[in-house]
């Protein structure tokens, strides 16, 4: 559906996107993840045909965005970063304007606007001026204008930024429900977002793709040591001495919580939970907790984007 081949984009001497390639299949929800300034927005602007690429190509349905800009724009619904809207217009009029610009026949405008109002929860604000709307409603108007022509592809640049937690959940659910029958590319720097909304994650850093896979794949790809957390009730000296002498694992962190319970974080090459249990029994410690810590997407992200 979308094919990006060795795409680069420079602003003057600065290379914002550096030879990235990826494909998006029909019906996929892709999350673009990366720190601010990583090149997410630029990549999206090239796919929508707003910015011409410096090198490489972007194809949408097999058509080159530089050669067939109008055909491609018809296929795409786009919500730019920070949701620009004509704030002096009434919501209904604005959606009617976009519908007309998109070439939707006039007799279908009402149906489409009502349909969008239902899908995006805009019914109460259709008669209000856009500059009087809350951020959450503005975001929904932005989504509505992106979908009014029922495009097969949606490109959403930070659709949930600046929203409160309730609004974030609502917009996420909206995107999820849209995503059942559309190809969606959304960007974010909020990690839980991709875990909840996306089938696949592409992590970009400094204009390059550093990871590409499903959230689960990326989590398990973080190789190396496992982390194990144990909580015990015992003398601190005793436990510290035993654990630091132990060959199977090394200690990373230790804390004493308010109830006097000792908590240690250990790193090991393999699953050492059974050994730890036996160790505790042998030394007469009361074991109150034993957890293997999964590396989170956050760890993957941090590992890949800081170097």
């Amino acid at each position: 559906m979308i094919e990006v081949r060795t795409l680069s984009k420079s602003y003057g001497a600065e290379r914002a996107v550096d030879a990235i390639s990826f494909e998006v299949a029909q019906g996929e929800i892709i999350g673009f993840l990366g720190p601010n300034g990583a090149g997410k927005t630029t990549t999206m602007k090239v796919i929508t045909g707003y910015l011409p690429p410096t090198e490489g190509t972007a194809l949408v349905n097999g058509l080159n965005v530089s050669e067939h800009p109008l055909e491609i724009r018809e296929q795409i619904g786009y919500l730019p970063e920070s949701t620009p809207l004509y704030s002096d217009m009434v919501t209904w009029d604005y959606l009617a304007f976009v519908a007309a610009m998109r070439g939707i026949p006039k007799e279908r405008h009402n149906d489409r606007i009502v349909e969008m109002a239902r899908a995006c929860g805009l019914r109460e604000v259709l008669a209000k001026r856009i500059d009087t709307l809350s951020k959450g409603y503005r975001q929904r108007v932005g989504l509505a204008q992106a979908m009014i022509h029922d495009p097969p592809i949606l490109i959403l640049d930070e659709p949930t930024s600046g929203l409160d937690p309730n609004q974030i959940v609502e917009i996420r659910e909206l995107i999820r429900s849209i995503g059942h029958h559309k190809t969606v590319v959304l960007s974010t720097h909020i990690l839980p977002e991709v875990q909840v909304s996306c089938d696949r994650v592409i992590i970009i850093n400094q204009g390059r793709i550093v990871a590409d896979g499903s959230p689960d794949e990326l989590q398990s790809s973080l190789s190396g040591e496992e982390r194990i957390e144990i909580s015990v009730r015992a003398s601190e000296e005793d436990v510290s001495r035993v654990l630091s002498d132990w060959d199977a694992a090394h200690m990373i962190d230790r804390t004493i919580d308010t109830s006097g319970e000792l908590q240690f974080t250990l790193a090991a090459e393999r699953d050492i939970r059974a050994d730890l249990f036996r160790l505790a029994v042998a030394h007469g410690w009361t074991l109150t907790g034993l957890t293997r810590k999964q590396s989170s997407l956050e760890d993957v992200f941090r590992q890949l984007t800081t170097s």
Binding site: T48, Y50, R73, Y78, P80, S82, P84, V98, M101, R102
Partner: peptide
């Protein structure tokens, strides 16, 4: 306001 980007990505 950024609406130029919306306008120029319309067909």
């Amino acid at each position: 306001s950024g609406t130029l980007e919306l306008l120029l990505t319309l067909p």
